[in-house]
Design a binder for these strands. Sequence first.
DNA 1: GCCAGAAGATAACCTGGATTATAGAGGTCG
DNA 2: CGACCTCTATAATCCAGGTTATCTTCTGGC
Lengths: 226, 226
Amino acid sequence: MDKMGCGVSNRDNNMGQAAPLGEDFAFFRPHQFLAREGEPPDGLFHLQEGWACRYRLLGDGRRQITAVYLPGDFCEPYWILGRLPSQPVVALTNVRAARMPCRLPTGAMTDGQKRLWRSLGESCERQASWLVTLGRKTALERLAHLLLELFERMRRAGLAYGQQCALPLTQMDIADLTGLTPVHVNRTLQSMRARGLVELQAKWLRIPDMQALRETAVLTPNEVLA
Amino acid sequence: MDKMGCGVSNRDNNMGQAAPLGEDFAFFRPHQFLAREGEPPDGLFHLQEGWACRYRLLGDGRRQITAVYLPGDFCEPYWILGRLPSQPVVALTNVRAARMPCRLPTGAMTDGQKRLWRSLGESCERQASWLVTLGRKTALERLAHLLLELFERMRRAGLAYGQQCALPLTQMDIADLTGLTPVHVNRTLQSMRARGLVELQAKWLRIPDMQALRETAVLTPNEVLA
DNA sequence: GCCAGAAGATAACCTGGATTATAGAGGTCG
DNA sequence: CGACCTCTATAATCCAGGTTATCTTCTGGC
């Protein structure tokens, strides 16, 4: 299998030390799942040989890979943050991996530290979602995602009033968030207004039809916005 | 300042509990830095009021915002992973924030856990870099970034041989990583080959001129690829 | 209330990358 | 060895979003 050098090298690379007898290994073939969305993973994998990747698939077949795992990598470090995988992981080649427990000791943490810990997990997940949005979504979908996310986070912070909240961003800020130009943000917002998807003026956002905006954003069913 | 509702609400939002006397607060005006690239932050901020964002600026003025912080958010949770900020953070509005220590207890960790911890930090950082690449870079720049990163990671894993390493990805995988179509990946790779930037065939990558490829990828000077 | 600079709106035109189609080159498994 | 399938290559056409330019409307400072 290693004629291509995808696996561990012969020379000692001080990443994959020799497995102690009885260590728990797992093997995967290309396209096999190391973890599925929303399901507790079998364990944390320390890749010995082969490549894997994490990705998200949109309903219409668009796919964005959000991480690659090479030999020596842990798959997937985010799992220690105590959340269920929000994106599946599959093998790209034949894979051999050491399986290890998935948790870091959070027992000793204060409440404040736990809150910070949770916040770290949410940040990682949001970032992974935005990779999909920036890599694969249209201007309209990007804006819908952004506005929904900001509203939802404001709501959770107790700062939304009904369907409305403050949104102190310029169109240029929005452009730099969504990877678009200010001109195109303006154009697209106009068309969203025209279709009754959002009202946005004077740094104030109103979402008349939450469901319509959610559909516009083509989020994964259980995609977290917080 | 709060006529827009950007700050904490009047009702109890159970995020920002009343500050104990003597708690350390910080205030920022729009465009003021909460943290600069490569400099140890003053502390971890728990935002009470106002918005902030993290971003990266490319040499030619392209900017990608990679995170927004709203009232109640911690800024920036990644900092507890013990790395210096790789992207600056600025206030978008007037900001009031509680300042707190920046570390989680890593003393009790085993070596294995520390390695995992480090790996988590690298993943977060890589992901933030890819937000910039997917949001703001051209096809050529994206491919250069990807190939450099994969080579560099293979090298660190002891799996590179001189300027070469295995790269068991199809052009379709590369497309799904870079947010492009397979056709355009092929076209762009052809033109990179023609210019002597890379050699890529039979799942094997060779980088004849590392420096040229680095420049093509428009990375930030101290941008980490591992 | 006035002014200056920032932000929003809009139109005309351009281009990087998407789309669609077809053909050849490997790889792999009988 | 040949059949099949996946991957790579390449050309032609199209379009979402970028670029440039101008004008208007806010906003904050005095």
